[in-house]
């Protein structure tokens, strides 16, 4: 019987086509599945259009119908309270916003712009000496406060200022550490030695060149110095 079947089927020469058909269908099927996986996002966006909009009744489960108006008023009150709190977050005193990406600043009073211009901020340079000494020249970000203000400040050069210039580091109170005029006419101290000050290199305003301080042009520095008080906020991003 088996031999008979084999002979008959072989003579017909059909089986191979059916097998090829199944294999082709399988290949097509896998391909289609892969396309679906690849384009699931965009196909999904089309499919979603046909999903009916959901009903939204659950509020009545929490709030009885006769209390809806009172509930609405209470939410409005809550919103007003939050809005007031948010409004109070804007400083009453003038404040400074510094953009370290584009090296610009904005001097603000509430939501009014008082002055804007260019500044210089940290260069994102990492200075290394040997294996164990490293300085990162970047401007700190976030909300800082003006801790102190000074007219005609003297710059006490830190160790890195000598190392960067290939000079030997002098003792802490050595006269070569004191530089007059480098910081401009005013300085505002922010934290840990980070300052807002003037610059001799005005051509670098608008560029990231400092060791972490914020440098301003003379007129801008004067405006910032006279407008900001000790305790004023400086927002750096």
């Amino acid at each position: 019987m088996k031999e008979h079947l084999t002979t008959t089927y072989s003579q017909q020469r059909k089986p191979i086509w059916y097998i090829i058909l199944i294999l082709l269908a399988l290949a097509f099927s896998v391909l289609l599945a892969l396309i679906v996986v690849r384009r699931a996002g965009s196909i999904g966006e089309v499919v979603v259009r046909f999903v009916p909009l959901p009903e939204d009744p659950s509020l009545l489960n929490r709030v009885p119908v006769n209390e809806l108006s009172a509930y609405q008023i209470s939410i409005k009150k809550d919103i007003a309270v939050i809005q007031k709190k948010l409004h109070n977050l804007i400083p009453q005193q003038p404040y400074l916003i510094v953009n370290t990406t584009h090296n610009t600043f904005k001097l603000m009073q509430r939501d009014q712009l008082i002055r804007e211009g260019m500044c210089s901020t940290g260069s994102y340079t990492i200075l290394t000496k040997g294996d164990n000494k490293k300085w990162v020249f970047e401007t700190p970000r976030g909300m800082l406060k003006v801790r102190s203000k000074q007219v005609n400040p003297v710059w006490v050069r830190p160790d890195w200022a000598f190392i960067e210039e290939g000079l030997p580091v002098p003792s802490p109170r050595h006269p070569s550490r004191y530089e007059y005029g480098t910081l401009g006419q005013y300085k505002l101290e922010l934290k840990d030695g980070y300052l807002i000050h003037g610059t001799l290199y005005k051509r670098f305003l608008g560029m990231a060149v400092t060791h972490g301080c914020i440098r301003l042009g003379d007129d801008d520095l004067k405006a910032v110095y006279t407008t900001l008080k000790t305790g004023s906020n400086v927002f750096i991003y």
């Binding site: 260069s123 994102y124 990492i126 200075l127 040997g130 990162v136 960067e164 290939g166």
Partner: peptide
């Protein structure tokens, strides 16, 4: 952030070469 790593120069002439200006 684009950090630039700089090895401390040995002397002033090497420092002058390094401090070519901002990126």
């Amino acid at each position: 952030i684009r950090y630039v790593v700089k090895e401390a120069p040995k002397d002033t002439s090497e420092a002058a070469l390094q401090n070519a200006g901002p990126l």
